[in-house]
Structure formats: C-alpha cells, structure tokens
Simulated assay, not measured.
Amino acid sequence: MASHIGKLPIAIPAGVEVKIDGAHFEAKGAKGTDSYTLPEGITAAVEGNEIIVTPADDLRPTRAKHGLARSIMAGMVKGVHDGYSKTLEIVGTGYRAVAKGKGIEFFLGYSHTITINPPEGITLKVTDANHVVVEGIDKQMVGQVAANIRKLREPEPYKGKGVKYADEHILRKAGKAGK
C-alpha cells in the first residue's frame, strides 16, 4: 500500500523551473532557489507540468519516506514561487519591536533588550511596534525562526502578555477569586 500523499502529483506553477538529476532535486523561482536530495529508494520525474514521486519498492522504510519526500518537494515549489510568512503579535504594556539594521530589537519587559538577526534566506519586517513578519522560501526555517522569537517571551495565561502567533488563541485562566 503506497502513501496517499506520496501518490499526489506536484503541480509546477508558471515561472518555476524544476531540475531533477538522479537523487538531486532543484527548484528555481521568482523568490529564489532551493535544493533537496531525495532519500534512498525514492525517484522523481517531471511529466508535463507535474512532478511524480515514486517509491522503488513496497518496503516499510521506503513507504515512510515516500510521502515525506513529496511533501518537502511540494513545499519547495511553493516556497520558490510564493514564499512563506508567519506573523507574530506582541501583547503587553511597553512590549514592542524596533527594526535595527537587518535584525529586530525586542523590548519584552526584561532589564535588557534582545536583538535577533535573521539567518541567511530569512527576512524580518516590523509592520508596527506590535507586529513582526518572518518571511522566506524555506517553510521549516520560517517556522523555526518564528518559534525562536515566540520563545523569547511566551504568552502567559492570565493576561495574555508575551509574543504569540497572529492566529494563535491563548487559553485564559481566572486569577485568584478573592473574598
């Protein structure tokens, strides 16, 4: 039984160039270039304007890698064409972010400021003092940088203060009841 996700073809949008050389996959688009080495036992081929990913055999390790390889390749094609972004929201009195060169300086209620410089291929934007946008072509790296920024001051459950994803809902707790 093959992977349900692995069987799906990957549509190649206009403006994206795909090159498959043995186990090496490369996608080139308007946003940049990304490459991936296919796992052992997985092959890919371009048919028309689609990429078909096929397993060499029906063994369990190969089946496990089939869907993974297809998902990573589909993510790369989308990344070089559209890119990925995550928006973070800063909640709390005096909490804010300020652009500083390529990086961002955070004021999060600590006795010091925290400066974050983005890794290669990631751009950080401050839309206003309480919103930061992380953008890039690598889905995993965008998510990791956003998670690292969120970790600087995770949202607390009583007032919801901290750094949270824009679409994240914080479960609130009631404080002390009093008499």
Score class of each variant (00 low, 15 high):
1 M>R: 12
1 M>H: 12
1 M>K: 09
1 M>A: 11
3 S>W: 04
3 S>D: 15
4 H>F: 06
9 P>H: 03
11 A>Y: 04
12 I>T: 05
13 P>N: 08
14 A>D: 15
15 G>L: 10
18 V>Y: 03
20 I>N: 09
24 H>D: 12
25 F>T: 00
25 F>Y: 15
29 G>S: 08
30 A>H: 07
33 T>V: 13
39 P>H: 13
39 P>L: 07
40 E>H: 10
42 I>N: 08
44 A>Y: 10
46 V>S: 05
47 E>D: 14
47 E>K: 15
51 I>C: 03
53 V>M: 04
54 T>C: 00
55 P>G: 03
57 D>R: 11
57 D>V: 03
59 L>N: 12
60 R>P: 00
61 P>G: 06
62 T>S: 06
68 L>P: 00
68 L>H: 13
70 R>C: 07
70 R>L: 04
74 A>E: 13
75 G>Y: 10
76 M>Q: 15
76 M>Y: 00
76 M>K: 12
76 M>C: 09
78 K>P: 01
79 G>V: 04
80 V>W: 08
82 D>G: 01
83 G>L: 09
87 T>W: 03
91 V>E: 12
94 G>A: 02
95 Y>H: 14
96 R>K: 15
97 A>V: 02
99 A>C: 00
101 G>Y: 14
101 G>V: 11
105 E>V: 05
105 E>L: 08
108 L>V: 11
108 L>H: 13
113 T>E: 14
114 I>T: 15
116 I>G: 03
121 G>H: 10
124 L>I: 03
126 V>L: 04
127 T>M: 08
129 A>Q: 14
130 N>D: 14
132 V>Y: 08
132 V>M: 04
134 V>Y: 06
138 D>P: 06
138 D>M: 01
139 K>P: 00
141 M>R: 14
146 A>V: 07
146 A>M: 03
147 A>L: 07
148 N>Y: 11
149 I>T: 05
151 K>H: 09
151 K>Q: 12
153 R>S: 09
154 E>D: 11
156 E>W: 07
159 K>I: 01
162 G>Q: 10
163 V>A: 02
164 K>W: 05
168 E>W: 05
172 R>Q: 12
173 K>T: 06
176 K>G: 05
